[in-house]
Design a binder for these strands. Structure first.
Lengths: 255, 255
DNA sequence: AAATAAATCTGGTGTAAACCAGTTTAGATA
DNA sequence: TATCTAAACTGGTTTACACCAGATTTATTT
């Protein structure tokens, strides 16, 4: 008669510190996290495959995956579909009050920014858009979709809307860089006020595909509405960020 | 000879819209999400149990759980350990620039705030703390831990550090409300500047326990350093929020 | 009616095994 | 050498159990 499996002492038993949480997947998590924090694995280094980790830890693959999901939620690792798991690089620090634009603040942090224009078009304002811009529903707006990179890793996709009355012919300009600068230089349109919303979200179908991540991964939705001195809406921007790529930092004088 | 199981058409096959994603767990997700968005389930309503959903959808329990995790990441539902899954209430809107304090802005949104003092003590400043306060390592600091609720759901736990030199005897006051007001009223200490950091994180052991959620759940770490007019650090605050309880909204004039 | 004990229900964790569909790599071919 | 192809590998998804411990409810006792 054999010992019931659940009563047999598993071979990873002794790895667990005394009095510690006995959850196996946390043990696996800690072990991987230790390797990362120890510096054994540099930024963007590839982790052993799930099946290797499985045999290495003696856990079932489901358990190994639970540990990997945990580390992903913590922002320590990310994945490329069907390729592997990788160590997350340090996040970009984002200060909404210091409005310099993506290109300059990424560069200022010693990282390599890149913007890719995915497409532009003219759209009819939906009710929500019309409300934001203070125009009639159905009015024409410019829409541009861009993808932005840090060190060649896609970190956000954004959809920007601009009122053509403020920037006629905008789509003919070079939009691979700072849109704010184009507006300033070509149209003498200056941003005087920003309204920024941030909310944890799940990356849906379209965003996830554009970031080449699994749909449903956690992300951060940053919405920005820029106004000029007259209170007109200059730009409405929806940015979907990888949740591990961003750290928000604000410095505010209190009245 | 029987048909191989994986080739047999599963009984949920016809539920999937044409051309849609064939991933079963997303189908389950959509079905639950529809019920929520439809209003069949009000805020804080309890979902059917995992095993009920299982038989209701014909999926394995693991698949049902994948769907629930997805909805949790999206902030639509939350769980009480070993009790059930519940519909998330609307998030609180938080404006770091408008520094009124938790109690007042939660109330302003028609919700019911509550603060609970978990404990206070005097601690020796660690290197990191000493650096923030500009004191010597080992200097004494007040530490207070609090838990804050919205409509009787715990949404954040915080650890606050205060320099005793600015507010001697602080711990003898009533700290169940606004700390900023106590500092202002009792010590004539006014906050002139705030530095606020926000970063997605995983709720670790202690925070998760205090929020009565599973350790490792995604959260948002909001760190605030408050300075007075002389640039002295008045207060250093680490807030661990449930990720589904908060929406950050900032309105900024651009110089 | 209130306190207590037991049965039941619920999520939490773990195992094992398949099969699928992109990615990557190594080898064969032009 | 460059290109193409096929095999190997990787994560992605799903099934089906099993057992645990906390939460809840029910029945029982005081």
């Amino acid at each position: 008669m054999t010992l019931k499996k659940s009563l047999a002492r598993p071979d990873w038993w002794m790895d667990l510190p005394d009095g510690a949480d006995t959850r196996h997947y946390l043990g696996v998590r800690d072990s991987i996290a230790a390797h990362i924090e120890n510096g054994d694995l540099g930024h963007n280094a590839c982790l052993p495959s799930e099946r290797q980790l499985q045999s290495g830890t003696g856990a079932a693959r489901g358990t190994v995956r639970a540990a990997l999901f945990q580390l992903e939620a913590e922002g320590l690792i990310y994945r490329k579909e069907r390729s592997g798991w990788y160590v997350s690089p340090a996040p970009i620090v984002y200060d909404p009050t210091r409005w310099e634009g993506f290109m300059s603040y990424v560069k200022a942090q010693g990282r390599d920014p890149k913007t890719e224009l995915l497409g532009t078009c003219e759209v009819q304002a939906t009710a929500a858009l019309a409300d934001i811009f203070g125009v009639d529903a159905g009015a024409t707006l410019y829409e541009l979709r861009r993808r932005r990179y840090v060190d060649d890793r896609a970190v956000l996709v954004e959809t920007i809307y601009v009122d053509p009355r403020l920037a006629p012919g905008l789509l003919d300009h070079d939009l691979d860089g700072s849109l704010t600068q184009v507006l300033k230089r070509e149209y003498v349109v200056d941003v005087a006020r920003n309204r920024i919303d941030m909310q944890p979200c799940a990356l849906t179908q379209a965003e996830a595909a554009a970031l080449r991540v699994k749909s449903g991964l956690p992300g951060l939705l940053v919405t920005r509405i820029s106004y000029d001195a007259q209170g007109r809406v200059v730009e409405y921007d929806q940015e979907y960020w990888r949740h591990d790529a961003l750290k928000v930092s604000v410095d505010i004088r209190v009245g």
